[in-house]
């Protein structure tokens, strides 16, 4: 997918780090020379409860910071999948974790093994965060921001090169999940 303006929803539950990846995506857009806004909706639970980060990216000034017509939705929890799977327009792309119940796969509705990726990495002794795997898949499918910009944001945020690399690897493992998937615009 290739567009000028983007509206992205990163949804799941509290504790999954959705606001973190939303902020990462938004900041990467700023580094890329675009405008971005990232807003969040969450419940009082720090762990669990429906949570989403909205990211709007545009070359123009952004008037409304919440997503009105999502281009991409990432769903990392059953609740968020339920909320979006039937309400999206055919134009919207939905990426969701394949272990979640209630998803109906389709042309623009793609189950992906996010949790499996995390578990497999754990079995090899690597800690790969689910949120970054998800964002990596989103960025693999949709050319929202340049990878260089994402790398730069990670470098700005973390002083340790090791941490930067771990985050980068997690993103790449997400992107690898979608490298053979093609969506016709």
């Amino acid at each position: 997918m290739c567009k000028k303006d983007w509206q992205v929803i990163l949804a799941g539950e509290g504790g999954q780090g959705l606001v973190f990846i939303g902020a990462l995506l938004g900041e990467a857009a700023i580094v890329d020379g675009k405008n971005a806004s990232q807003s969040a909706s969450y419940t009082i639970a720090s762990r669990g409860g429906f949570t989403k980060a909205d990211v709007v990216i545009s070359d123009e000034e952004i008037s409304f910071p919440e997503v009105t017509e999502p281009d991409v939705v990432l769903a990392l929890s059953a609740g968020s999948l339920e909320r979006y799977c039937d309400t999206l327009t055919p134009k919207s792309l939905l990426l969701y974790d394949s272990t979640l119940e209630g998803g109906t796969a389709g042309k623009n509705r793609i189950p992906l093994p996010f949790n499996e990726t995390v578990r497999n990495a754990a079995a090899e002794g690597r800690k790969v965060p689910l949120n970054l795997v998800g964002l990596g898949a989103v960025l693999g499918m949709a050319k929202i921001v340049a990878w260089d910009a994402v790398r730069k944001v990670l470098e700005n945020r973390f002083s340790s090169l090791e941490v930067v690399q771990a985050n980068w690897d997690a993103l790449q493992s997400g992107a690898a999940l979608v490298k053979d998937i093609k969506i016709e615009d």
Partner: peptide, 9 residues
């Protein structure tokens, strides 16, 4: 709440 917790440039 929205203005306070949204991120922008």
């Amino acid at each position: 709440k929205t203005v306070a917790q949204m991120r922008e440039k």
